[in-house]
Write a protein that binds this DNA or RNA. Structure first.
Lengths: 335, 335
DNA sequence: TTGAAAGCGCTAACAT
DNA sequence: ATGTTAGCGCTTTCAA
């Protein structure tokens, strides 16, 4: 049995294809009687028009492409996982498919899908090299960058306020009596490093606390390297910080694990605070105190902003506040 | 600047569109000289043919649709999350997009995408109602069911061996001296309930151990309801099981949490073993001993089987073994 | 080896 | 209000 086409429906209803098309797309131009007649045939035959022909004619793919790098894959990092969940949920509001690209590795080429007319818009996860932004601009595809770190009014982006986040986290530590605070941070995205360090330093200096260089140059890329970094940080048992600020949630997990393996207690002996929050933060022991953001909301917002741009809206770069989530990994020092 | 078409390339190269098409698709029928000439233009202009026209002509969408229900959403349940990761990774081998459908709720209708010619194949996650299988068969779309529970040689499916999994889990408990074993299980998928219970019972009876009814009729749907179920199970402090078999990893998490809140220790006072393994199992405290399966491998396999079916292969229903993963939630009883 | 032309199924401009 | 038809950009058949 061949698939039905508008022609078949038109023939069966004894009308023209135009009429059928109008009915399918709820457009005026057909009498109520014909509309009913056509609708009846459509219902009876359970006819669904072929999307590809529509796509070809309208030069639209009804696809949105999620472009990720290995660090921002929703299937590797739970932070982006939750953003993607928000995007996917929101996509019900639009008749578009969300296509998750294979992670880009080259840093100089966008995936083929954007060139072959198979995407109407792009959502970039995390910062991407300027070269790629230029390419996206060049092929005239609307895009938005979610979890971007550099505000730039020429592109549409959503930027969590990591400066304030680091400030708030540090401040919370200080309020709890901590002054010896180490920072485990990431240099993968330079702007992110700059922002979190800025927040940390300004919180410290607002209380006239010194910033020790050996406590601000500890770097990690993921849970494992954070664990290794903790080894170095806690090398000398007579000289350990009372608190650690981890600029990524997974760093906190690695650091906590190492502290526990040293038979020290979190937060009894050392307090740990994170930036970013994922479902893991609630499952580890102790539950992680951190500064979080509504990730699903960010994803949802990204899609709205993208469609605004698709519909001719101006680029806008917005900053989103993060909020302190107090759980059990920080304790008060009284001395 | 308008997008280039094969016509443009043909004109620039001074050849026919046929020749261009042959070059694009690496087909014979053009002389080496013309091929070179055309390739040069293609490279210079960075030409990528429009996919939609190809799709329309070939009646292929180059899309694979992942059909999920609310319980099997990769963005809600980490078990399916890891399967999806495997599917996505494997999809690099094929030039197809993976489209995650909105979760189906109706149980009587497949998503529009399968009817509008926008998918060449379907991967169903978890069991689906027979009505939907019939619909999928009716629209002649190849499909595979991953994490299916009912083997059926007329459809292609991947079935983890939950009977043996439950048997092995129970057996491990028994080997560690446990005889008073409660089961927290799920009735959402009836076959799954039947299989896990069968495995449990046969392990018990193979050691001539009695199966208590009040220990096999404890049901949950997720972490929270498992937590609630644990409340009931541990109501009478003088009469608690020494071990709990949780047929879903998330049940184990809820049960462990409740036990800990009662100030009992896992596994000191009560041992807990799970079926299924996700990344959470390694982050909770104690780390969960469970029976796991290579989920990404299952996803990867599903895609291969789907393409086999797309290419005319016969349906095949395969069973996959699960393996005991010993971590820290079960202790030996010596009395 | 090369090129002309048909046609995939739809929408919309245009004619009636 | 209704029908006719061009055409989206490609692949492939057929003829030269």
């Amino acid at each position: 049995m061949k698939r039905l086409t508008v022609k078949d429906i038109a023939r069966r209803a004894g009308v023209s294809v135009t009429a059928v098309s109008f009915v399918l797309n709820n457009k005026p131009g057909v009498s109520e009687a014909t509309r009913k007649k056509i609708q009846k045939i459509i219902d009876e035959t359970d006819f669904k028009p072929n999307l590809n022909s529509k796509k070809l004619l309208l030069k639209k793919s009804f696809n949105i492409c999620l472009i990720i790098n290995p660090y921002s894959s929703p299937f590797e990092d739970l932070f982006y996982f939750e953003i993607t969940r928000g995007i996917l949920n929101k996509s019900r509001n639009y008749d578009y498919n969300i296509i998750i690209s294979r992670p880009i590795l080259s840093n100089s080429e966008l995936p083929d899908i954007v060139y072959s007319g198979d995407a109407d818009g792009i959502i970039f996860m995390q910062d991407i090299p300027p070269v790629l932004i230029d390419k996206a601009v060049a092929c005239k595809l609307p895009f938005v960058i979610v979890d971007s770190h550099s505000r730039n009014n020429k592109v549409t982006s959503i930027n969590p306020d990591y400066v304030t986040a680091a400030f708030d986290a540090t401040n919370y530590l200080i309020e709890n009596g901590h002054t010896d605070i180490a920072v485990v941070s990431s240099k993968i995205v330079p702007d992110f490093y700059k922002q979190t360090l800025e927040g940390f330093k300004s919180a410290m200096s607002s209380r006239a606390l010194p910033v020790k260089k050996e406590y601000t140059e500890i770097f990690a890329e993921d849970e494992n390297s954070a664990y290794e970094a903790a080894k170095l940080l806690f090398k000398d048992p007579d000289h350990i910080p009372t608190a650690v600020l981890c600029t990524v949630y997974s760093f906190a997990i690695g650091v906590i694990q190492y502290i526990k393996e040293m038979n020290l207690s979190v937060p009894g002996d050392v307090s740990v605070i994170g930036i970013d929050d994922t479902l893991l933060s609630r499952y580890i022991e102790p539950k992680l105190t951190t500064v979080g953001i509504d990730k699903a909301g960010m994803g949802s917002m990204a899609l709205d902003m993208l469609f605004d741009k698709i519909n001719g809206g101006k680029p806008e770069s917005i900053s989103l506040p993060m909020e302190l989530i107090v759980r059990n990994s920080v304790s008060k020092i009284t001395k």
